[in-house]
Every structure is written in structure tokens, then in C-alpha cells.
Design a protein around this nucleic acid. Sequence first.
DNA 1: AATGAATGAGATTTCATTCAT
DNA 2: AATGAATGAAATCTCATTCAT
Lengths: 196, 196, 196, 196
Amino acid sequence: MIDRILAATAQVLEERGYAGLSTNRVAEQAGVSVGSLYRYFADKNELIEELRARSSADVLGELTGALTDAVAMPARDGVRHVLAVLVGSLQRHRAITAAMIDEAPLGAHGNILPEVERQLAQVTRIFVAVHAPSLDPAEAEARIHLAMGVALNACLRIALQPAPGITEDRLIDLTADLMVLGLVPDPLGRSATHAE
Amino acid sequence: MIDRILAATAQVLEERGYAGLSTNRVAEQAGVSVGSLYRYFADKNELIEELRARSSADVLGELTGALTDAVAMPARDGVRHVLAVLVGSLQRHRAITAAMIDEAPLGAHGNILPEVERQLAQVTRIFVAVHAPSLDPAEAEARIHLAMGVALNACLRIALQPAPGITEDRLIDLTADLMVLGLVPDPLGRSATHAE
Amino acid sequence: MIDRILAATAQVLEERGYAGLSTNRVAEQAGVSVGSLYRYFADKNELIEELRARSSADVLGELTGALTDAVAMPARDGVRHVLAVLVGSLQRHRAITAAMIDEAPLGAHGNILPEVERQLAQVTRIFVAVHAPSLDPAEAEARIHLAMGVALNACLRIALQPAPGITEDRLIDLTADLMVLGLVPDPLGRSATHAE
Amino acid sequence: MIDRILAATAQVLEERGYAGLSTNRVAEQAGVSVGSLYRYFADKNELIEELRARSSADVLGELTGALTDAVAMPARDGVRHVLAVLVGSLQRHRAITAAMIDEAPLGAHGNILPEVERQLAQVTRIFVAVHAPSLDPAEAEARIHLAMGVALNACLRIALQPAPGITEDRLIDLTADLMVLGLVPDPLGRSATHAE
DNA sequence: AATGAATGAGATTTCATTCAT
DNA sequence: AATGAATGAAATCTCATTCAT
């Protein structure tokens, strides 16, 4: 029943947008009475929260696979792979993601998928520890904080916005480059030369 | 009167969020009748649009000054300066910016201040032409597109989100680095080495 | 519930006129919430339409009986009977009829009860075919068109307006005469004499 | 100024209908302030009343000429002439007349132009006295009352409604016939034969 | 006299939420 | 557990009318 209601919520969101999302409409779409909806969800907000949490979990699931794959790859390739999977996942949840970003009263900017960001940050910490072990921990955190924002925002842009004249692949490439550059102070030992 | 109404709109937005923004509430806050509000604004949307336009213009004004200053500076310093000013400006318009980003049905994801992004992109094009003249135009556009998203999103994060344990300055530094790295393929002639 | 709302609508119409007919007032009069009103009627217009349709159907029902009776009577008696019943029916629906005629934005002048007029016209066509078979069809239509206006208007006047010093019966008599005269070119073979 | 306001009222009525008639709109159309409008008219109702009175007077003026002409004509021709002029006059005031009939809260059914009806009745009394001198006075009044309704309603129909497949002239002819028949019990001495 | 900005009651309509069945 | 009719606060917007200038 909960699943049916959440599925209906997602569909209404896709078809009518956040402004057109009413509890009655959701119940009707779900083939359920409003009363039942309120048996399983305290209020409209909880309904939305739950849907977001589930979408987040979905994305997270796909992401976890990608992260597992990524550890076996060269750094930049791994990052790229993760980003590509994230973009795909967001596209698959396009409707809900879009509706939420545009309109839902989230109260956190860009943190549409906080769990995703957290998980990504977790793995990124390991990545940084491996590829830039000498980096000061506080400095590393700062870079990760920033990089997460950049990565999520970039992926959302790539996934949801029509890029004029630029292929999605190229954008993912660039983002991957950017992340590696941003996270690892000197990915190719340039700093040695640079420091001289 | 228009100013009073817009000021009231901003305040209601701060106190109640976008969802709590009603024309009656705005009128009351402004100490004005609803009728008057509708004398000056055709409808609720126009009211919001006007507020956004004004905020946008304000930010844009401050940004323009920063961009003018920046041309006389070394590349990275110029970029940093612009970002710092942008962060400050967004902080000063925190309330409206935040409300609009989170909740206003803008239809452009993260692109809350389209004018700002456009203006920034314009100048960035020149920056790229100067500092990476050999870059393929399409490639340059892709990088700028991405960089604008990154820059705005990063500035918004810095301006609006409590950064745990990291100074704002450090984040701006990192963002500046990132932008330079992202926009100019090989700021230090690294690619020569890279190619071998 | 629908009935209660419609009854309330009729009552408000009687007491306050069309201009004083508000959905809130109707709901209050019906002892029902506005929300309920809107559960059963899509909008104010539908409410009014439904009331008109029902009144129309009521009048039509009574009219149909009268028309059935009338066929078995001599022409003038039949006409008179129909008119008398129509007057009575309109009087019984006085409030709604009056409000609608005077004020509802119908777009058809005097044609308040289009169904009634149509039904009446239908039977009148047969009447004419029987009593004035030699009449040119176009001419017959013209006469019927006119007669319907006359009949309805006359009945409305009789039903709704205080006739000073004239009995209702006498007015109905006169109207019946008029209709017979108007519909049948020469009810008593006068034209033969006339032609000489 | 009064004239300007009334002219503006008429124009707004034509362009926007009764529902679109607002005092502010009228004032604007007249190039006058609302305040001024309220200096000359106690309220909106008075404005409308005055406009109706003036339209009525206009129609009345044209009618008076026709009535003067009519006295010199044979009965039926005179009646026909008056009706034709009335139809023309109503057509010339079509917009206002139509708006008023359909929507204005008149409170009197069909009595849109009470002065016109009264004047017409006055002359008709003379007509009846001349052409049916033996008619009982009460009976005469009844016939006149009815005939006025018929005449005005018929003229309004002819003037304002698209008659499908029937010429306006023919309808006026029929109406004239009807009125003569209705007013004079036996215009051609038929009753003598009838009475036997 | 004239202006027109300001008023505010009131109209239509929506929708989250409740509760008797 | 489930239903869904009923609720009513609240939102947007209009417009007749007033009154300080």
C-alpha cells in the first residue's frame, strides 16, 4: 500500500509537477482513499520526504555498484565512471529529481540527495587518502566538501539540462578532470616541478 | 510604495519561506492593503519576478565592479576576487536568494540568477580567449558552461551553507583554483610533459 | 446534498437576486461547507446551469402533460389550456424564473427557457400543419418563431407581473386568441370574403 | 462631463459587456477620474439607470416621429410603420439594449424601456378608441397591456436576434398583423357573422 | 471641482486534514 | 483497516467607494 501510494506520488509529480501534487490526487492515482494515505503518512510532508528518501536510496544503490567498480580502475577513469553512472541514475529519476529541485521546499541548497552526497563523500575520502596521502586532513575535508557540491551540481546539470552543442560525454569528461584536479593537489607530480 | 511592498515580500520570504508567501501576508507586512499591492503588481507572479529582478540587478552590479577590478589582476587573483565578491553579494541577499533557490518554481535548476550566470559567462569567454587562446571554441564553450555551474553552485554553498571546520576564505581559494584549472587546459604548460 | 444545495441556491436567488448569489452564501444557506458545494459542482456556473436545467425540466414536464391533453381539445381550447398550464408552472417557479430572466447572463433575450420554447415550437408545428395545411412552410416557420416569442413573453408577463385591474384568466384568453389568429392565417375562412 | 461619462459607459458596455462594466473602467474610458464620476453619480446603479433612461429617451424620440406619421395612415400601415421604426431604433442602440436585457439587474421583466412602453400604450389607447370604439374600457386596457408586451418583445427579438431564414420585413409584417388582430376584436366586421 | 491612490470587504476556488461509518 | 464525504481556513484577485490633496 505504501509502495502504491509512493508510486502514485511519483507519477503525479511527473505529470502535474510539484504544484499539482495534492494528497487527494495522489490517493486517487493510487486507487486508494485519502484516509488510507493518512494512515501511512502523517502528513503531506512526510509523504514527500519518504519519496525523496527512496529515490535517494535508489540512486545510492546504483552508485554503490559504480563505486565498487571504480576502485579497480585508474583514478581518473574511476571518477569518470562514477559520474557517468550518477548522471544516468539521475536521468532515470529525472521527473522526481527535477520536481524536487525546482519546487520542493527542501531548505537545503543543492542537497537534494543528502544521502547520496554523504556516501559519495565517504568514498571520496578514501580516494583522497590513497591518491594524496600527504594532504592535510582539514584541507582534504574542504576539498571534498567543495568537490561534492561540484560533482552533484554538475551531474544534475548534465542530467537535467539540455546542453546546447556539447555532448553529455564530453561534459562528464570535463567534470571528471575537474574533480581529479580539485581533489588531488598535483595528480601528475607536477607540483614537484612546480615547487622548484 | 513599490519599494515597501518589495521589502515586505523579501521579509516574508525570509520569515516564512516561499510556501508561506501570500499576497495578503505581504500586504499586511507592508502595512498596505491588498488592493494596493494589486495596483502595483498585476499578480503574485509579477511581484516575485520583480523582486528577483531587483536582487539579480543588485548582485549583478556588485559583480560588474569586481569584474572590472579583476581584469587588472593576475588570472587566479582576478578569479578569486570575483568569487569573493560574489559570495559576499549572495550573503547580503541571503534571504531572497535562499528562498528562491530552494523553492521558487523557476524551471532552471540552480540557475537562479540567470543574468548573473550569463554576465559571468560573457567575461569568462574573454578570460579563456586570453589565457587559453588555442582552445577549440566548442571545447571552450563546454568548459565555460560547466565552470559557470560550478562557480555559482560553489558560491551559493559558501554563501549559504554553514561550512563545518573550513574557513570561507579557504573554500574560495579552492574554488578559484578549480576554476582556473577547469577553464585553462594546462595553465602551466603541463600538457607538454603529459604527452610524452 | 445536491438537492439541498440547489434548494439553497433557489432560495438565495429569491432573497438576494442574481447579484447577491455567492457560493459562500449558498453554502451557508444550505448548512453545508463551501468545500462540499465544490465537491458537487465544478464551479458557480455549473451550479446555476443545473438549477436552470432542473427548473426547465420541471416546467417542461408540466407542459408536456398539458400538450397531451390539448390534442384532444378544439384548437383554441387546447391553446388556452397549454397557456394556462404554462402560466401556472412559471408562477410555481417564480423565484428562479424571475431571477434568471432579469439577471442571469444568458445571452438569449427572453429565451430563458430555450427547451420550453423548442418543445412548444415542435408541437406548434403540428398544430399549424393540421389547422392551416395550405400555409407555405417558410411562412409557417416565421409565424411559429414569432408566436413562440409572443407566447412565452406573454406567459411570463402574466405569471410574474402584477396585472392592474385585469384578471389573469382574461389575459390568458386574449393570448390564446392572439396565438390562434397569429398562427392560422384565416381561422374562419375569412380570407375568402377578404379576397373579394 | 456627465455626457462623457455616459458615453464611456455605453462604450464599455459594448466592448466588455455588463460583467466587464466597472466604475474605474468607465472613468478611464471617459478620460476622467473615478472621483469625478462619483461627483456626478451617487453610485454605479445611478450611472446605469441614467444610461438606460437616456437610451430610452432616444428611442422614444424616434418613436414619437413615427407615431405622428402613423396617425395619417391606414391602421395596419400605421402600426407597421411604428414597429419598423422601433426595430430600427433598437438596432441602433443594440449594444446597450442587449447588455441591459441580458444582464442588468432590472427587476422588471421585459420592461427594459418602460418609458417606451408607456408612450406606446398611450397612443395605442387612442388607436383602440378610434378603431374599436365599442370595446369595453377594461377589456381595452387588457388588450393594450398584452399588446405592448407582445410588441416590445417581438421588436426586441427582431432587432437583436438573428432570424434564421426569415426576413426582418416579413416578421414586422406578421407582428403588425398580430397587433391589429389583437387590439381590435374584429377588424373586418367578422364578428357579426361570427355572432350569429 | 477634480484627482487618483488607497482601501478592504467579499468573491471564487483549492486542498490538507478529519472522522463517522 | 479502509473509506471518502465533509470541512473550513486560506489563497488569489476585483472593484465600488472614499478622501486627502
